[in-house]
């Protein structure tokens, strides 16, 4: 039997293990160390794009044939037609092989998987988006989506605090510079320690959040970053007045199936792949701290 994707129907319904074939359209090197790359992918069979409908915050299993699969948050926005993109840090087996691939190579994609940023809950709210390092990906997806002319009016003020170790490690630099010119977005970029040529904010994300975010009423915070950043940002948000119901974060766990069967990504009774990856702080506080 040939892959169901060739007949054009949504094969998530048929066999959740069969990946779409994706052609690498472009590879963008995000930092001088070259261990952060953004892969922009096209559907090899354009028909299949229709069945790949996603919401910012979802993830997908990306596979290098012969090496394996790994889950990554989708960095592109559903409003960007024709492409799906992922930003990948070179760490393990799959990411290392992915980093060796070039434009034109074919990889696999299973998804979209998991829940998403709680878009419906965000409508008519002020948004505070807090991120650090290369965890910015699905928040970039959301921002791109929210800044779409069609969607911008759905949300009130949008404040972004995005930090990295140094300016080089900020993702999507060209886009950030575009966004910094917009007046419907308050973008605060920060780096951990000052360097020559950086005229922006210097300081860790939690501290900058404390300075920048003044108001918690009618506001929802979306937080995604390294564990240590999240750990210190949450008390800051609580101090400002955010309730655990209004703080959302996206978790990372080792995953294989992505559909709640293979059993490794659970935190308590919740599966990060199926019930997450996005959880409200309230939900997280009810789960054991095993992540």
């Amino acid at each position: 039997m040939t892959c169901s994707c060739e007949s054009g129907h949504n094969h998530n319904q048929v066999n959740p293990y069969v990946p779409y074939r994706m052609k690498i359209k472009d590879v963008i090197i995000e930092n001088p160390e070259k261990d952060l790359k953004t892969f922009i992918l096209n559907f090899l069979n354009p028909e299949e794009e229709k069945s790949f409908t996603y919401i910012p915050g979802q993830f997908a299993e990306v596979s290098v044939f012969g090496v394996g699969e790994a889950p990554f948050g989708i960095a592109s926005s559903p409003t960007e037609k024709g492409v799906v993109s992922f930003t990948v840090k070179k760490l393990g087996q799959v990411t290392s092989s992915l980093h060796m691939l070039e434009k034109g190579d074919v990889i696999g994609l299973r998804g979209p998987l998991g829940n998403s940023w709680p878009i419906e809950k965000l409508v008519n709210k002020n948004l505070v988006i807090i991120s650090g390092g290369f965890a910015f990906t699905t928040l970039r997806s959301f921002l791109y989506y929210a800044l779409d002319p069609e969607n911008r009016k759905l949300f009130k003020n949008i404040t972004v605090v995005y930090g990295a170790r140094n300016p080089d490690q900020l993702l999507y630099k060209a886009e950030l510079s575009e966004w910094s010119k917009r007046d419907d977005l308050d973008l605060k970029l920060t780096i951990d320690r000052g360097v020559e040529g950086w005229n922006g904010i210097v300081g860790f994300v939690p501290a900058v959040t404390e300075q920048v975010v003044k108001e918690a009423s009618n506001t929802v915070a979306l937080v995604c970053g390294p564990p240590v950043m999240i750990k210190f940002t949450i008390p800051v948000l609580k101090k400002i007045g955010f309730t655990p119901d209004d703080i959302y974060t996206s978790l990372e766990m080792k995953m294989k199936c992505g559909i709640g069967m293979c059993g490794r990504c659970n935190i308590g009774s919740k599966f990060v792949c199926k019930d997450g990856p996005v959880f409200s702080l309230k939900e997280l506080e009810e789960l054991p701290a095993e992540y």
Partner: peptide
């Protein structure tokens, strides 16, 4: 699944 992938070629996936 089974697959066949060659560089610069689309390869195929067989469920």
């Amino acid at each position: 699944i089974r697959y066949r992938v060659e560089k610069e070629k689309s390869g195929e996936i067989v469920e």
